[in-house]
Write a protein that binds this DNA or RNA. Structure first.
Lengths: 233, 233
DNA sequence: GTAATGATAACTGTCAACAGATTGATGGAT
DNA sequence: ATCCATCAATCTGTTGACAGTTATCATTAC
């Protein structure tokens, strides 16, 4: 495992001196973890990292403590820090939290909806329908992500937005994540339409229910996929 | 290594060598912040702390980075770390998140309710009623806290539990928090009874709504209290 | 061949020191 | 009296080094 490779990303950041080395390192490590370049379970060697980034171990330790609080890594005394590995149970728990947050975002958004936003969201769902017919998951995924992000970003609660992102990010640590991403494109987008209608109606309660249910059903699909996969093993 | 510090709490922890100095410091700092011994807005001086606890600055810096990720302090480059200060808007946002999480906890709990737990929760509400009649807030507050904690702790989702606590803790950073704590004891406990009935019925949807509404109404009381206070100024 | 053992290497925990930035004070000019 | 420049003190950012712990691996005994 030769971690001795140059990181262009970090160099970009270190040029800007207004950002501390620690936070730059933290962002870079987070990127490495979320993109999967640092796989769940692997140990993060402080000395290797300090060589790789040309810094001392101090800032790296600070960055990893921050990542630990964010739940992306695990620190074991005298043994090191490990990229956190999510079990199926962890992932299911996260879906519950995410459903709660997303439902709340839907409620808030319904109560402050604008015509322009509704048009944009409708356009996205139409586009997803078109892509879903072709069954192209690689095209569907970013659209789906953007749709959800736009909803939560527009709900007017920055705390909620930050928390939502935290949990969506954490799902990247779940190895079997790819299982659930494949199926049910058309089904999922039908739920999107129900959400749209609720948002358009301005009924917060109804919006909360539809948004909550959308994630709850995704959780069901995850569980079903995992069970199916386990049976096939 | 003689740890010459005024903090009995810290000494308790350092005796156990399985816990790193950093995490012991973090717990202690968190305690100081949540109890208000370190007030919102004040700067945390690394050198003073290292003298106080008899350590070097390294572990303290690591602990503060962790607290930053938890949202309890704010780090400003080259200026230091400050105990985070929550605005009214921040507090309101947190209530929304808390409502979402608490509602979800109610749903999960309703679907796994036991007779013993229901009896215990009922007992607590009865006790709160008795205390509320006397209008004794100091007695009501810990009971109320315990009631909510028992619900979230019993819902079976540890991730949700951790997040819920995170946000309840963050509310300690809100200076005007005391405003909302005083009023509506009897009203609040009437909402508790509605929650109890929903939990007893085993209807997850209904439990989620009642639990969500309980926090949403608390948020309204907070806003009303803040507005009233502003008018009286 | 396998398991216990002990030496060695590698790594983390902590510390003390240096470099750079910020703050506040001092003194002079207007 | 006010404003600005300069400077000293204080604090943070970062580094390199040392101590203690864990992991590795060859050796030995069975």
């Amino acid at each position: 495992m030769s971690i001795v490779s140059d990181s262009a990303h970090l160099n970009d950041l270190t040029v800007v001196k207004s950002v501390s080395l620690t936070s730059a390192l933290e962002k870079e490590l987070e990127r490495l973890i979320l993109t999967g370049e640092l796989e769940p379970g692997v140990r993060i060697n402080e000395i290797h990292l300090s060589n790789r980034f040309g810094t001392s171990r101090g800032p790296i330790r600070e960055a990893t403590r921050s990542l630990e609080a964010k739940g992306l890594v695990e620190v074991v005394r005298n043994r090191g820090v490990f990229v956190r590995r999510l079990s199926v149970e962890d992932a299911v728990e996260i879906y519950d939290v995410r459903a709660a947050l997303f439902g709340q975002a839907g409620r808030l958004l319904a109560e402050r909806m604008t015509d322009g936003l509704l048009a944009e969201l409708t356009r996205m769902v139409d586009e997803m329908d078109a892509v879903a017919e072709r069954g192209s998951f690689d095209d569907y995924y970013p659209l789906n992500l953007g749709f959800h992000n736009l909803i939560v970003s527009s709900c007017g609660n920055r705390t909620l937005l930050a928390e939502y992102h935290r949990f969506v990010n954490k799902l990247h640590l779940f190895r079997a994540r790819a299982l659930v991403q494949g199926g049910g494109l058309a089904v999922s987008n039908r739920e999107h339409r129900a959400m749209l209608e609720a948002l358009a109606s301005g009924d917060g309660e109804r919006a909360q229910v539809t948004h909550w249910r959308h994630v709850a059903l995704a959780k069901r699909r995850l569980i079903a996929a995992v069970d199916g996969h386990a049976r096939n093993d």
